[in-house]
């Protein structure tokens, strides 16, 4: 029931990380979804495209690892684990 707020928070964090890295594009976003997070993959994917429309993360691939372990200390959480981003190549950088 809180998917709207969670997506807004993820949207904010993804763009914050992208900006901090001076990314030109976000290619892939990886989420870990706890067993007790009360949010299904279907719910997340249903709103994903419009959440990131018009941003650096538009069209980014969404990978979701859905945990089935209710004993996990983060079982009720959703974790943004990784992001694959494009960086502008700067002369002299490795």
């Amino acid at each position: 029931m809180h998917e709207e707020a969670l997506l807004r928070d993820l949207h904010r964090k993804v763009l914050e990380v992208a900006a901090a890295q001076a990314a030109t594009r976000v290619r892939r976003i990886s989420l870990w979804v706890g067993a007790l997070a009360h949010l299904t993959e279907e719910q997340l994917r249903a709103r994903w495209v419009e959440t990131f429309a018009g941003t650096l993360a538009e069209g980014a691939q969404l990978d979701i690892e859905h945990s089935l372990d209710p004993e996990d200390p983060r079982a009720d959480k959703i974790v943004l684990t990784k992001m694959d981003i494009d960086l502008r190549h700067v002369e002299g950088s490795s």
Partner: peptide
């Protein structure tokens, strides 16, 4: 263009409802 993977490990929060 360089591609990089960033480890974020950020727990999403329910907030900003108001």
């Amino acid at each position: 263009m360089t591609e990089r993977t960033i480890d974020v490990d950020y727990v999403a929060r329910v907030e900003g409802e108001g």
